[in-house]
């Protein structure tokens, strides 16, 4: 059984159909990349998997280890192991990163009937992860994302992912706004978390990120459907030829259907 199985997914937002019958299977241990032009529905897919409520699913189903993901509340989906690294991480004033991360970790532990971690246990736990993402100690006492640079925000996303150890990690344009050093650090963090039990979906515009996080599969999303799938070399082809080629193909396909 695939870890994630998306069947014929149709999604509307404000009465406009964004996803128009998307199918995708992701197995544990795999890294999938979803590429596509602006407005093709990449972020919508990420938001729906993270259970953002303003997106209306009109048709189709999504199974996470056989469970109906679409029936879950966002926090339950998170506790079941779905993690989304935000394209634009949110700032929360007055709440320290350490407090927030421990609250998140404990919410997940509580959901699984495990003992909550106190501040003393939490400290050595997060310190190790901080090293991995090359973040300064002051990171933890600062308010969540407040006054963080673009690069720091993205590193904070991956730090959270490293702490929460999700089953399914979705990176929504994590590369946007990153310089080459930050990109390397973030990619190292993600690569360090590759494991046979974890699946990762990397949503990106550009091939650049995929030099660092090498995917097992690349899918091209155009106009709400996956129109082409292949191995990592597909990303290179796209980089050279742009999306125009696949868009034409997709249109031809749509007419044929």
């Amino acid at each position: 059984m695939a870890m994630l199985e998306i069947r014929n997914l149709h999604v509307k937002i404000e009465n406009r159909e964004i996803l128009k019958g998307l199918n995708l299977k992701v197995n544990a241990g795999e890294v999938h990349s979803i590429m596509g032009p602006n407005g093709s529905g990449k972020s919508t897919l990420a938001q729906v998997l993270a259970r953002r409520e303003s997106y209306l699913v009109t048709e189709g189903e999504v199974l996470l280890d056989g469970k109906d993901l679409l029936a879950m509340k966002p926090e339950d989906a998170a506790c079941e192991g779905v993690f989304m690294a935000f394209q634009y991480p949110i700032e929360i004033a007055g709440i320290s990163n350490a407090y927030f991360l421990r609250a998140a970790l404990n919410a997940v532990r509580k959901y699984h009937g495990r003992k909550e971690m106190d501040a003393m246990d939490f400290l050595p736990f997060y310190k190790g992860k901080m090293k991995l993402l090359e973040v300064d100690e002051s990171f933890m006492t600062r308010s969540v994302n407040e006054g963080f640079s673009g690069g720091e925000k993205k590193r904070n996303e991956i730090l959270q992912m490293a702490l929460l150890e999700p089953k399914l990690a979705i990176l929504d344009e994590t590369d946007s706004g990153l310089d080459i050093d930050a990109l390397r650090i973030v990619a190292n963090g993600v690569n360090a978390m590759r494991s046979p039990d974890r699946a990762t979906i990397v949503i990106t515009h550009y091939q650049r990120l995929l030099d660092y996080i090498v995917p097992d599969f690349v899918h091209v999303l155009v106009d709400g459907r996956i129109v082409k799938s292949g191995g990592k070399e597909l990303a290179l082809t796209l980089e050279e030829q742009g999306y125009v080629g696949v868009e034409t193909e997709a249109r031809a396909l749509a007419v044929a259907v």
Binding site: A50, R52, E53, K73, P74, E75, A77, A78, C79, F83, M84, F86, P89, I90, I92, A93, G94, I95, F100, A103, A104, L105, A107, V108, Y111, S143, Q160, L164
Partner: peptide, 21 residues
């Protein structure tokens, strides 16, 4: 939504934001 996506229930998320404020 950000806090919920990290596993924190909605009510707790709101009170966390207010307390921070």
């Amino acid at each position: 939504f950000y806090l919920q996506q990290r596993g924190i229930p909605k009510e707790d998320a709101l009170s966390m934001i207010i307390n921070g404020f």
